[in-house]
Amino acid sequence: MWNQLRTDEYEGMLAETVTMPGHNGDRIHAYFSRPLGKGPFPGVILIPHMPGWDEFSRETARRFSQHGYLTLCPDIYCRFGHGTPDEIAAKARNAGGVADDSVMGDCEGALEYLNSLPYSNGKAGVIGMCSGGRHAFLAACKVSGLDAAVDCWGGRVIASKEELTAAQPVAPINYTPELSCPLLGLFGNEDKFPTPEQVDLQEEELKKYGKNYTFYRYEGAGHGFMYYHNQAYRPQQAMDAWEKVFEFFGEHLSTEKRN
């Protein structure tokens, strides 16, 4: 839980850029952070948002590790080249976005990487914000072996036929029957991407198929309300949302997986 660290306890972490197996066996970069110690620790796959594989993603990874999680943030944009996050995000947009199949393959590689570590407890969740939230929901439906998923205001989970593209050929909502782990959703009621009405439709679909999910919706908050680096930030709503994330992952990832 947030700010419950004891002042007499040792704390330390390691954070570094690593390479990992991605989609189709590609070797891609990832930012990996972990608490120091023998563990075992649960894992978190952090899918970066469309602003890119950026400093916010790295800081978020370290926040999870401060709370006891192995965190791997794959550079899902690695295939577009290298430069600043803004430069590479622009290349990705101009190319029609990163392909869903590619992101799911990278998530599978990230899960394999985390589970192979000797200090892993064998459980892992996935979280993403904005387009990463959409990808997190998609991974919860398409990637086998995840134990929990958090969708932070993921847009285009519901998409019309006109909005579908070669890179994103199926609306993630269509995969709801395949959702295989508990889902937490965090949304702002002033968001337009997704709108509250789209969140309603997603919730109806989850109920229809009897899925294990919890949604929280925040008044006075729009898209990106946890982004403390820009004007979208809403501190009260953001800190409550962080509490919800830690509670959720604590419930579903903290115990060691039994074979």
Rank of each mutant, 00 (worst) to 15 (best):
L5W: 08
D8Y: 00
Y10V: 13
M13L: 15
T19E: 11
T19Q: 15
G22F: 00
G25C: 08
D26G: 10
D26I: 03
R27M: 12
R27G: 03
R27K: 14
S33H: 04
H49T: 08
M50K: 14
G52R: 10
S65N: 02
Q66Y: 14
Y69V: 09
L72M: 05
I76A: 02
I76M: 06
A92H: 07
A92C: 02
N94R: 11
D100V: 07
V103I: 13
M104C: 07
E108A: 15
Y113L: 09
Y113Q: 08
N115S: 08
N121Q: 03
A124E: 09
A124T: 12
G128H: 06
C130A: 15
G133R: 01
L138Y: 15
L146V: 05
D147F: 01
A148G: 06
A148K: 07
G155Q: 03
R156M: 05
S160I: 07
K161D: 13
E162W: 04
L164T: 00
A167F: 12
Q168A: 14
Q168Y: 14
P169L: 13
A171M: 05
T176P: 04
P177R: 00
L179R: 08
L183C: 06
N189L: 15
F193G: 15
E204M: 10
E204A: 14
L206D: 11
G222W: 03
Y228S: 11
A232V: 12
R234K: 11
D240M: 06
A241Q: 01
E243S: 13
L253K: 04
